[in-house]
Design a protein around this nucleic acid. Structure first.
Lengths: 377, 377
DNA sequence: GGATTATGTTCGAGCCGGGCACAAAAATTT
DNA sequence: AAATTTTTGTGCCCGGCTCGAACATAATCC
């Protein structure tokens, strides 16, 4: 337990708290407000801010006179301060954020050199950290596994190694949940869950604003629990997975289409539109999908007791079209004694930008950190 | 975020770290070792220990001369220092620890006055905190719910209120897991799970040595997820719960007995003995129980990715008699890509003392805390 | 008995945050 | 227009903390 603390560490700690507050704030606040917020004196705040200004981490700009009192300054990120880039790496495309560049790719790990070049095109000395979102699990933090692409165990060091800026990386569904937890629908919750519904269901358990990673960094495959009684065989190698009844694959399977990763998304969207138009078969498919979703959420709520559950991807459509059915199925699956306080089920507010936002979030986590800041000043 | 820190708090913090180290250590260590362990100087350690000695929290005893060098002292809890009592409150009995007293009870909340009297019999001025383990969930931290006793929502303030020493309280299955996580089979793991198998299955997710409580403090009902495809109706009000296939109720049901909380435990044990003797029907029941257990663990491992899973109660017998069957069923339920690293499944090492040990643990958590220690000195 | 080794002890230095008094700059009141 | 009120910035001193270095102490080893 080498979490030693000397008085110098104390200052860094308070400076990080200050930086984090500025970074997380919806609107800029003044130095005096910051002092009150952190519970420190105005004089101490002045000293902290002074050092951070000198390290080009924080900047003071004159504040518009609000009421009485001596005019003060607003605290904003320094214009020459550190930046992070976020990369959302999907099955077929990648995006460098914030909306800097997007490209398709050839589905081989060689795409990383492409991304590296794109990063270089926009890179400035201010780039401090790169956040990656990948569409597959990253085992033990360094072995990337994307079955849709046939990537079995791509060593991150070999594709993200020398020649790259410092980088952090995590799974997209987990990062989408983190984004909701930090900046979206799940903000401020102690226990919550997020599910991203695409071809199947990926998700994450969020505790006090942190996404849980598990012992081998591959937690989150909630879609591969047998929660709905299906007897089909799943691509993951097991029978009966929840994902067999929820998501794009489940929708298209009802119409005789083989689940897959080609045009499945468009097909699923088309089915939803036909259901909106009242086509009976599509309506039934939608209803079943919503019910299976709600049932699974209820089952998980029994075990993990989340305050709320947010959804992204197809889940947003399911809530929009069949909120009642989802909630009803959830309620039926809840133990009787907890039915009077069911978990809130809601669409994520970060939306499709979830993985990108989450990737930026973990990149900032790495920057707004005592050791990084200490190094900088 | 008023986690303000002044230099005075710094000292308290280091003192708490020191106390915690002494409390958690398997064998006493010397003052110089403590300094190295905490990463502080020998002089600082002397100052910290001095104050703690004066506050009667730590005591120094001469150490047996080990090798060269000036002889030193061992750090041990102060003989007049704080103590905690732990209470394990079960459906029909209660125990005041460490094995101080045990009694039966009449299944009404009036039993708390009985326990209060027992506490008073052993109480000394050193008693600092009482830790309670209950056999039911404690909603929102203050409403106790034990369905077997017909206790719907017993307000803790009304039974544990004035006239009691300071007390902390939690659910028994959760505390058993905490005990394994802090002092037993799960020690040192970042992500682990514990299941207590009795009539049904209760459990907890353990992250970095802490049991997760959920949004309403009622997390842990893993036994009430539909993981095994059962179609029976469960007492909890839902169909298909995992607990319908695992545990004492599941065992006795196969023999035409209604599940219940009377002689169920003895009956289940008898079935296990008959299975050991080779009686075919009992063997089948045991096999099915073990398989259902393994299947559920595998399903949960897909989602939560624990490094290990420990079991208590009937689970210990199941591992002893049918480890292979459990592991095989678990493996079949694991997603193919994670079958080469299945979670370790093992019996808890704290054993039947789990709830009691866990209750002591949360009591110590409340004592070995900056605010408590600051108050004392 | 002297050298070696590990630990305890003392003292000064550097740093941190708190508290106080006072200065500065606005809005409000007179 | 001047005085008052309100809020914030600044400078100074204080108590507290940990650290590092030098020295003292008590055992073992040769």
């Amino acid at each position: 337990m080498p979490q030693t603390m000397t008085s110098a560490d104390l200052r860094i700690r308070n400076q990080v708290r200050l930086l984090r507050a500025v970074h997380d704030a919806a609107a800029p606040f003044t130095r005096a407000e910051a002092a009150r917020l952190l519970g420190i004196g105005r004089n101490t705040a002045a000293a902290l801010v002074g050092e951070l200004e000198q390290a080009r981490l924080l900047h003071e700009v004159p504040a518009a006179a609000g009421g009485r009192g001596r005019p003060t300054t607003l605290l904003v990120p320094h214009p020459e301060g550190p930046q992070v880039f976020a990369v959302d790496f999907r099955e077929d495309t990648w995006t460098l954020a914030a909306e800097l560049e997007t490209g398709e790719h050839d589905r081989t790990p060689a795409v990383f050199t492409e991304i590296r070049a794109a990063v270089a095109r926009h890179e400035t000395p201010r780039l401090a950290m790169l956040g990656f979102a990948t569409s597959g699990p990253i085992r033990d933090g360094h072995r990337l596994h994307i079955s849709h692409l046939g990537w079995d165990e791509v060593e991150l060091d070999s594709v993200l190694g020398a020649g790259w800026p410092p980088a952090v990386i995590d799974n997209d569904a987990r990062l989408a949940g983190l984004a909701e937890s930090r900046r979206g629908a799940l903000r401020g919750m102690g226990t919550a869950m997020h599910f991203h519904i695409d071809f199947d269901i990926g998700g994450t358990l969020l505790l006090a604003g942190d996404a849980q990673r598990g012992g081998h960094n591959i937690a989150g495959e909630f879609g591969h629990m047998p929660l709905t009684g299906s007897t089909l065989e799943c691509m993951c190698g097991v029978r009966g997975c929840w994902s067999l009844d929820v998501g794009a694959n489940a929708l298209v399977r009802r119409f005789g289409k083989q689940p897959g990763y080609g045009t499945g998304r468009e097909l699923a969207q088309a089915i939803l539109r036909r259901a909106e138009d009242g086509e009976p078969e599509a309506v039934a498919a939608l209803d079943d999908n919503a019910a299976a979703l709600g049932k699974g959420i209820g089952a998980l709520a029994n075990a993990l007791d989340p305050e709320a559950v947010s959804l992204s991807g197809l889940g947003v459509d399911l809530i929009r079209l069949r909120r009642g059915r989802i909630e009803e199925a959830c309620r039926e699956q809840l133990m009787a004694f907890r039915r009077d306080e069911p978990p809130q089920i809601m669409p994520g507010t970060v939306g499709a930008a979830g993985p990108l936002t989450g990737a930026a979030e973990i990149a900032w986590d790495a920057v707004l950190d005592p050791v990084w800041v200490k190094d900088r000043l």
